[in-house]
Structure formats: structure tokens, C-alpha cells
Design a protein around this nucleic acid. Structure first.
Ligand SMILES: [Zn+2]
Ligand SMILES: [Zn+2]
Ligand SMILES: [Zn+2]
Ligand SMILES: [Zn+2]
Lengths: 172, 172
DNA sequence: GCGATATGCGATATAGAATAACGTCACCCC
DNA sequence: GGGGTGACGTTATTCTATATCGCATATCGC
């Protein structure tokens, strides 16, 4: 691999995402403070969903006084802003890679989304399938139910792990 | 209300469900022991999803030595048998009222299901919508993903709470 | 009968996740 | 300069879940 000479492309991408996030917040009258930006960076840096306490440990490297409320408050904010999602099955958090981030579909910052969670390697992919969202909405309405938020999480094996055979790549 | 003279219809229904559960377990070579039956009864008695520690407290009335592993082990078994589901958003457990219980649709004891969780009154309804299940399966496969288990949980307001207006009936 | 294995469960300790409650400081508006 | 608001620090507590060890029983092959 190439050394981390100046700035790896991934780091650049994260910095760009942070700047976009700051703009998006500002446009809504919210502020992505230094602390919140720091937490968001940690989430975006992680290759997989991260637990709140894992974030806390990392955060303490830069901010010795950090405590659970520190990270939970930041995460609450980031979720409200649609920058981060919570993965219920994992009690963990992941950066939004859906429409908000890439402007793929026409949804707002509280967009419908679904997670594909690989039991083999831990990779978690966010998708935004309108048929799923519509089917769930219709099913709820058929029961007289008025939905506000929906969680869809699928556990299984990702394409890479399926291709790699039984064991799957390192369950990192 | 009628007094609890001999056996309320609800209690009878629960007992019947317990007997059916015992038969279903036996048919699969598993045994619904006294402890497991006790925990299942507590889950079925509850009007809403119950937390593991709430179950533990009740269980201790009859079984003073009960500890967290006691109830978690029983819950794991009951989930494997499809008698109980976990509601991820609530960290709570609920008796299966889906196809397994009533033989409505043609699914096994690991059947697809979805939850409608009322934020007003706490009621949680289990539904079994094939279109939702199919849409999720298709979306996953389109990503090369092989699903094993799926969680679908919708938060919102139930029909009763919508009909009753803003506040909703007692958030019991 | 007897060791081997498996299951169910008691019991203790620990880990992991989330919130409650209170205080401080900065900022803004009037 | 009083009063409100938002962000954050700090401490304590609650809630949720698992790791281990150990014991009893059941079942099986022999
Ligand atoms: Zn997203
Ligand atoms: Zn994988
Ligand atoms: Zn069910
Ligand atoms: Zn309701």
C-alpha cells in the first residue's frame, strides 16, 4: 500500500463530506460545531458501523473530558441532520451514504433507507429502495397506521462474502 | 368489568397458546420446559412488548434465584422456536401473533414479519405482508446480498390513537 | 453399571449502551 | 443588564446483555 504521505484520497473524501455537511447544516440554521464535526469524522472514518463507546474512546484521544453524553448528544444532532443513521440491530452508528450524501434520489434529509448487514464481514450497506418504502407504507396504512419512521435492516451475506465462499473474508 | 372469578377468557387463550407452543416444540424435538413456559406466559400476558428485566422482575416472584441469564436463555430459546420476537427499537420482546400462532399464511416458524409500533400508546402489532417481504428480498438480491433475517419496524400512530385525536389514549 | 456427551439451569461477575440531572459559559435580543 | 437559548462539561445512575463457572440430569454405547 502507499504510505499516508500527504492526504489519502479517502481522507480527502471525508473532509469534503464534512464540508458539505457543514453547509447543509448551516442552510437549515443548525451548526456543525467542532465537536460534532469531530464525531462525524470518526463515524465516517470507520469502515463499519461504530458503537457509541468506541467513538467515545477515540474521541477521548483529542478530548480527555469526553463522557457518554458528549458523544450521544453529538450523535443525536447528526441523526437529526440526516448525516448519521443508527443501526438498530448493532446498536451502532454509520454515516449516511444515501441520497443526502450523493443526491441520487429526491428525498430530504429524513429520507427512507434500508440496511444490508453482512454477518460475515460486518459490512453494512445503505440502500434506498422506493418499492420497499412504498410497500411498507401501504402495509401500515392498510392497518390504519400512520407511519412516521421506518427501520428496515436485512442480515445476510454480502456479495463479496458470497463470492469468497463459506468462510467469507476476514470478519473484521 | 367482570371479576376474575374462575378463568378470564384471556387467560384461557394464553393457556391454550402455551399448550400449542409445547406441542410445536415437541414436534421439532425441543422442549418447552417449565421455566421457558413461565417466561412465555409472562410475555403473552403483557399487553405490550416487555423488556428482559421487567420479565426478570416478574419471574422472581415465582423463582427467587432468577438472574439475567435465566431470562435471556429462555428468550433465546423462544425466539428460535418462533414463539417470541424481539422488537429492536424497543429492546423488548413480544409474543408472536403472526402466521405461526394463527395459521394465517403459509410460513414456517421463522416467518417474515413486520411491526407497527404506536408512539402514542405503545401498542405493537405484528403483521405479515408478503409484498413487503418480497420487496425487501428483491432489493437485497439486486445488491448481490443473500438475506437470512429481516427486521422491519414502523413507528407511528395506531388507528385507535389517530381516531382519538392528538393526545391519543392513555400511553399505558 | 459406567464413562462420555449433551442439555438445562443456578450463580456470580462483568461488559456495553443510554439517560438523568445539574452546572457553566457564550451568545443574542431587547 | 435581564432573560432566553443552545452547546457542552460533569457526575451518577439505570437499563440491557454476555461471559464464565459449576452442578444436575438425561441419554447413549458398551
Ligand atoms: Zn441515509
Ligand atoms: Zn461480507
Ligand atoms: Zn410472528
Ligand atoms: Zn396507539
Amino acid at each position: 500500500m502507499s504510505g499516508a504521505s500527504v492526504a489519502a484520497p479517502r481522507e480527502q473524501a471525508v473532509e469534503a463530506a464534512l464540508d458539505r455537511a457543514a453547509s447543509a447544516c448551516a442552510a437549515r440554521g443548525a451548526q456543525l460545531t467542532a465537536l460534532r464535526r469531530q464525531v462525524l469524522r470518526l463515524v465516517l472514518d470507520a469502515p463499519h458501523p461504530v458503537g457509541a463507546y468506541a467513538l467515545l474512546d477515540q474521541l477521548r484521544a483529542e478530548r480527555p473530558g469526553a463522557a457518554p453524553p458528549t458523544v450521544y448528544r453529538a450523535l443525536d444532532f447528526l441523526q437529526e441532520q440526516g448525516l448519521v443513521h443508527r443501526v438498530e440491530r448493532l446498536n451502532a452508528f454509520v454515516g449516511c451514504t444515501g441520497p443526502e450524501a450523493h443526491h441520487h434520489c429526491g428525498h430530504g434529509h429524513d429520507h427512507p433507507h434500508q440496511f444490508l448487514i453482512c454477518a460475515s464481514c460486518g459490512a453494512t450497506a445503505e440502500i434506498c429502495d422506493d418499492r420497499v418504502a412504498a410497500a411498507v407504507r401501504d402495509a401500515a396504512r392498510a392497518a390504519g397506521f400512520v407511519p412516521t419512521r421506518t427501520t428496515v435492516e436485512v442480515e445476510g451475506r454480502c456479495a463479496a462474502c458470497v463470492a469468497a465462499g463459506q468462510g467469507g473474508p476476514s470478519p473484521a
